[in-house]
């Protein structure tokens, strides 16, 4: 393929939001990203999911012109990332995993400054700051210095700052890392509102439930490589079997019920920690009926029964060979070992 030809020729009516082909980033001997392909469609939320150090943030930084691309190519809305960084910066709003707002300024001053820097008149910059503070529920905190902001408020201000020029594409790098569950829920609501308003979002996360909640499509990345891609449903289906979750009326009968299902399906059910609960792996979801009928015939009453698809956690474990939840001690993102940050 001729490397100077655009990935998506102009004849095609609309270019996708993001196309990346064979992206590579090396830091010395370390290949942080070793050949990742991505295609983000317009108007969707695309999740890049992976553990710490998988290369998510590095990929995002290359697409946002914050790191030079060492190999491969990328286009955003038809504009070449490596060749036209200034144009790319006008198309993308970036919210980093650590709030990138000025500690010495108030919320209002931050938004005003970012507006002025991006060519708004003094008056428009003031009006936009006011509007965004209102939209993000920060009016009252507008005149407080950032040092008095809570973690959630900082993230919201950071996101607000990325929206000043209403960029068609928004990059969110681990938008809820380090937030408590309640604040995380609020952040999710904010992101859903953006999606409803028609923004295209590229999101990285190490939380499976976050990708499941927000993303239309997900790419799973591990050790700098894409290991899977699809909708959350597709990924779950790819792992295969569903599970029947049962809760017995009489916990004393758990062993009998387990023996019965084992005989029926040829597979030993897993007992769950709560009393009277057991999980039965099903090769086919229709087998659930067989199990329920057998239990009824043996006079074993149940309080609840549910057939569930595998969770993304299980998908993640299958795809990467290690559990998805990050270790608390490993909070510092290892995907960008920039030497100048080492003191």
């Amino acid at each position: 393929m001729n490397s100077s030809a655009p990935i998506h020729p102009a004849e095609r009516r609309t270019a996708p939001a993001v196309v990346a082909q064979g992206l590579v980033k090396t830091f010395g001997d370390f290949r942080a990203v070793s050949g990742i392909d991505l295609e983000v469609r317009r108007g969707e939320v695309f999740g890049v999911l992976g553990p710490n150090g998988a290369g998510k943030t590095t990929t995002l930084k290359m697409l946002a012109t914050l790191l030079p691309i060492d190999g491969g190519r990328a286009e955003i809305l038809g504009v070449d990332v490596a060749r036209e960084p200034h144009r790319i910066r006008q198309l993308v709003g970036v919210t980093g995993q650590y709030a990138s707002v000025d500690e010495n300024l108030t919320g209002r001053e931050n938004l005003w400054l970012f507006g002025r820097l991006q060519g708004l008149s003094r008056k428009r910059a003031r009006a936009t700051a006011e509007d965004l503070l209102g939209r993000f529920g920060l009016e009252e905190a507008g005149d407080k210095p950032i040092s008095q902001f809570s973690g959630g408020m900082r993230r919201r201000l950071d996101l607000a700052a990325s929206l000043i020029t209403q960029p068609p594409l928004i990059f969110l790098d681990e938008p809820t890392t380090g937030l408590d569950p309640r604040t995380r829920g609020q952040m999710w609501d904010t992101i859903r509102e953006l999606v409803a308003a028609g923004s295209t979002i590229l999101l990285t996360t190490q939380y499976l439930d976050e990708a499941d909640q927000l993303a239309d499509r997900i790419a799973v990345i591990d050790h700098g490589l894409k290991v899977a891609e699809g909708t959350p449903e597709q990924l779950k289906n790819s792992v295969g079997s569903s599970t029947l979750h049962l809760r017995l009326e009489d916990a004393e009968q758990t062993a009998r019920a387990a023996a019965l299902t084992a005989r029926l399906l040829g597979e030993v059910p897993v007992l769950t920690p709560e009393s009277g609960g057991l999980n039965v792996a099903l090769a086919d979801a229709n087998q659930a009926a067989d199990v329920l009928i057998a239990l009824r015939q043996a006079d074993l009453g149940i309080t609840s029964a549910a057939v569930r698809q595998p969770t993304l956690d299980e998908v993640f474990l299958t795809l990467t060979g290690h559990p998805g939840e990050p270790e608390a001690a490993d909070e510092s993102e290892a995907t960008t070992p920039q030497p100048e940050e080492v003191h």
């Binding site: 102009a10 270019a15 036209e84 006008q90």
Partner: peptide, 24 residues
Amino acid sequence: MTTSTLTHELTERELGRTLAPRPT
């Protein structure tokens, strides 16, 4: 080079905004 110019012009038309190639 001409094709690449076309692509960004297409994007500009769709978005209804011009994309400066570099700061003045």
